[in-house]
Design a protein around this nucleic acid. Structure first.
Length: 209
DNA sequence: CTATGATCATCC
DNA sequence: GGATGATCATAG
């Protein structure tokens, strides 16, 4: 399936309620009393008829699927609720590869982002807001590259290294813990709301109309 | 257990 | 409200 084809398919979902889609595709939202935090993404993958897997390489060949939650501020405006996980940070890999060969850039260039509105709780209905692809402008490219190199330099620094990475780093892209249980041993690249705002127009809301 | 999916809980 | 670290489901 081509990226453009996938975007088209996903855009058919705009305005639909995610919980309904989840039950339709048999995606787990609740397991006992716990929430499956990746359910939203699974729903979209199911919609495209894709299998769930955890490979770091793009599942769909030429592109990557991502989803991001949006929330309504008191003013009624829409805002990003969370940062978006991009890809795992492999210390060795990052140290060896320049930005242009990195997983980070590869993922960003192939990403297809599904924005969806959420309430104050998981039980609140969630509607698909929009579907969009990432297009890095020169400015953005340089900015992201700077963040990547910042992480890279930290890893290369004998006095710092992998454990020195924290979510405080990075302007557009931040390194952050991501793993099971306390004391996560792994880190991943996350896109800050600031970065996402460059691609997603929050002033356009299907609901507010 | 680790990697990927993305959100929850908590601190400021 | 925004940012940072922790957490849960699924697949191998």
């Amino acid at each position: 399936m081509e990226r453009r084809e996938a975007i088209k398919k996903l855009q058919e979902l705009v305005g639909q309620e995610l919980h309904e889609l989840a039950s339709e595709y048999g995606v787990t939202i609740y397991r006992n009393d716990k929430v499956n935090k990746g359910w939203a993404g699974h729903v979209f993958e199911r919609h495209l008829g894709l299998p769930l897997n955890s490979a770091q390489c793009p599942n769909f060949g030429s592109w990557e699927l991502k989803s991001i939650p949006l929330k309504f501020k008191k003013s009624g405006e829409l805002a990003f609720k969370e940062t978006m996980a991009i890809t795992m940070i492999d210390s060795v890999n990052v140290c060896q590869k320049e930005f242009e060969d990195s997983h980070l850039l590869a993922k960003l260039k192939k990403a297809v982002i599904v924005a969806r509105t959420v309430g104050s709780h998981v039980d609140q209905p969630s509607y698909i807001h929009s579907v969009t692809g990432i297009e890095l402008s020169e400015e953005l490219y340089e900015a992201v590259k700077a963040d990547y190199n910042f992480v890279r330099n930290t890893l290369l620094d004998p006095k710092k290294g992998f454990n020195a990475l924290t979510g405080k780093m990075g302007f557009y892209i931040q390194p952050r813990t991501k793993g099971q249980g306390h004391g996560s041993t792994s880190r991943a690249f996350y896109a800050r709301p600031r970065f996402l705002a460059c691609f997603i127009n929050l002033s356009v809301s299907p609901q507010a109309g």
